[in-house]
Simulated scan of single mutants.
Amino acid sequence: MEELNGTMIFWLISIGMVAGALIKVSIWKQGVELIPNLIAGVIGAVVVGSIAIFINLPGSLVFGFLGSLVVLFILNVFYLQSDEDHA
């Protein structure tokens, strides 16, 4: 069984940062900037990955990646841009 240790937290943080960077590259000029994407990706991966470990689900890194994608999707979809950005 997986356990929440330093190595697992490192991998969850890494997965969240990769997901945040991929989202920023894929939506380029729209949405939130790079740093908020990275932070949101890390938060989503660590929270969902930790929950998956605590309830003994296999594949907590996959759940962490999916959790980061969900948080990043919500962050970027509901991001309000000013009217100047649309010109």
Rank of each mutant, 00 (worst) to 15 (best):
M1A: 13
E2G: 04
E2I: 08
E3V: 10
L4V: 06
L4N: 05
N5F: 01
G6A: 07
T7Y: 10
T7Q: 11
M8F: 08
M8V: 12
M8E: 11
F10R: 09
W11H: 14
L12T: 12
L12W: 11
L12V: 12
I13H: 01
S14E: 08
S14H: 00
I15A: 15
I15F: 11
I15D: 02
M17P: 07
V18F: 14
V18N: 01
V18S: 07
A19M: 14
A19C: 14
G20I: 03
G20M: 04
G20D: 04
I23R: 13
I23A: 09
K24M: 09
V25D: 03
S26A: 12
S26V: 07
I27W: 10
W28G: 00
W28T: 08
K29G: 05
K29S: 10
K29V: 08
Q30V: 13
G31V: 11
G31F: 12
V32I: 11
V32E: 07
L34K: 06
L34G: 06
L34V: 13
I35L: 13
I35G: 00
P36Q: 04
P36E: 03
P36I: 01
L38R: 07
L38W: 06
L38F: 05
L38S: 05
I39M: 11
I39D: 00
I39R: 00
V42E: 01
G44D: 08
G44F: 10
G44R: 12
A45I: 09
V47P: 02
V47R: 02
G49C: 09
S50A: 12
S50Y: 04
A52E: 02
I53Y: 01
I53L: 06
I53N: 06
F54W: 06
F54Q: 09
F54P: 00
F54L: 09
I55N: 00
I55F: 06
N56H: 11
P58A: 09
G59A: 09
S60G: 05
L61A: 06
V62D: 00
V62L: 15
F63M: 08
F63Y: 14
F63N: 03
G64M: 07
G64Y: 07
F65H: 03
F65R: 02
F65N: 07
L66I: 14
L66F: 11
L66P: 00
G67D: 04
G67V: 02
G67T: 04
G67S: 03
S68H: 10
L69K: 04
L69D: 01
L69A: 10
V70K: 02
V70G: 04
V71F: 15
V71Q: 09
L72Q: 07
F73N: 07
I74K: 09
I74M: 14
I74E: 07
L75E: 06
N76T: 10
V77Y: 13
V77T: 14
F78W: 13
Y79L: 04
L80S: 05
L80T: 08
Q81Y: 12
Q81F: 12
D83P: 10
D83T: 10
D85T: 13
H86P: 02
A87E: 07
